[in-house]
Amino acid sequence: MATSTPPIELRRLARARTARFGDPEPLDTPSQPQFTVEDMNFFYGDFHALHNLNLTLPSLRVTGLIGPSGCGKSTFLRTLNRMYETVARTRVTGKILFGEANLFDYAPTLLRRRVGMVFQKPSPFPKSIFDNIAYGLRVNHLCSRSELHDKVVHCLQRAALWNEVKDKLNQSAFSLSGGQQQRLCIARALAVDPDVLLLDEPCSALDPIATSKIEDLIFDLRRSCTIIMVTHNMLQAARISDYVGFFLQGKLIEFDAARKMFQFPSNKLTEDYITGRFG
């Protein structure tokens, strides 16, 4: 049951983006599909975690995945770079295309290089700031020793962290604040030049100022990188997503352009969730 006049909460969400970024070009125009998911099911042992997902994630857009805890959005995210395989007794059925190719035909290492991931808690390596970025490059043999420094600098600039760390590249990454550590992790993920960046609640452990810096960063990155982000924060989803998927109890309830979904959700469950009536 779609309502004809959106409630105040929905209009506020829809305006969140305008307030934050002055609503630059609306990026809900069509683009190449990055991931095409068909009839996907996910099982943890006998537990059926995701039911019959069908959706297309557009490339070079920010897609937000929302839903209450335990609804399967993180699980879905972790199938996209096959990180779920590290957990025993997990199983996926159905079809997922990455670009045009079958996701499961990729070698996991190659896939993960092209589909980077940043986690909920900042997880820098116990090394210097410089080495944290250089790790991905070294592991993948992506550049020569002479290029390394320039590459690291470039990544830190891309993650908008350069000005804050340029004088202490040799200090431990743990000397940074939580927000800086998280941006360092994003820079680290960007170092291997991925096509896609998966973000699993990247701001949930951060304060509002650090959060807004990361949102700015995500907003800039979507020009060069497909972003798929799980978030608990509805306002955040409204602020930075171009597309939004709403998960509930392992099912995809609705997937649509953010502006449409936050103003005129086509499903009653979606409306109830984003207006705060449950969840």
Partner: peptide, 27 residues
């Protein structure tokens, strides 16, 4: 060693041995 260290390394496209030798053991 926190699982997040392993996953962070793996997310960079590291092989199992890279994860072990360059992330888990130093930690």
């Amino acid at each position: 060693v926190p699982q997040s260290q392993r996953e962070a390394m793996m997310a960079l496209g590291a092989t199992k041995w890279d994860v072990t030798w360059k992330s888990v053991v130093p930690y």
